[in-house]
Design a protein around this nucleic acid. Sequence first.
DNA 1: CCAACGTTACCAGAGGTGTGTCAAGGTTCG
DNA 2: CGAACCTTGACACACCTCTGGTAACGTTGG
Lengths: 126, 126
Amino acid sequence: MAEGDALTIHEAAETTGWSPRMLRYVERSGLVVPERSRSGYRLYGPAELQRLRTLRELLERFDVGLSEIGFALRLRRDADLREAVGEWFDAQPHRPEDVAAADWLRWEQEKHQRLLNTQLMETAPR
Amino acid sequence: MAEGDALTIHEAAETTGWSPRMLRYVERSGLVVPERSRSGYRLYGPAELQRLRTLRELLERFDVGLSEIGFALRLRRDADLREAVGEWFDAQPHRPEDVAAADWLRWEQEKHQRLLNTQLMETAPR
DNA sequence: CCAACGTTACCAGAGGTGTGTCAAGGTTCG
DNA sequence: CGAACCTTGACACACCTCTGGTAACGTTGG
């Protein structure tokens, strides 16, 4: 055990529901980056643990991926990008929202349906 | 040619630099959704053409993908999601970003140093 | 009528994401 | 010292993104 109330990666994994593998992956995505001990061990403090738990909830609740939150982070940091994207959206003369939204929704539903189907195929091959 | 000054998918492809295949893909992503003729043909008007050109520039300039702009669109439309993501980012007590980045860099350097040391130990034990 | 175009629905292949596992080696601590 | 951790790196696999095809079939216009 190391100094302070910081947990090692395995301990952090157990209390947050992530796997150690995924904690390293999350770190690489830049979303939760723990401190390091002198010898290089990751040290997860209470703040990181909380952040990991809420991140998990966020991903599940909205069915988004790490890369998407990573892009949101990029949007938040890069003012040029944020502005350019905003301008592109704002430059809609007759905003096709409703039609597009309906289409998008249908597509999403179909995706989930496909996923569900394959899962059913796997778990109930009888 | 159809009614008005609308172009068919092939014509639109030529003047915007996308391929017909990609125009359908862009449509499915919800970013540029053209009107349809009575028989189902896609009709690209001047607004859509401009939108396609600027979208192209946006993607190249920032090296992002359609799915990422699609996520930005989702962020813009879904207030719940936008708020949740914002809260998650804001709930950073001591924002580890800068420190963590610096720390990581230091760690990398040290690792290389250690590696170099061990290599020296191994290759020059004579 | 028929050539040339449109539609959807598939297959395919390269590259990224998400996740597990394993190997080779360093660290901690009883 | 030795067990039980930790580190990075790599292989593997399934799914998604992006992009190109091809097939089967409907539409348009000379």
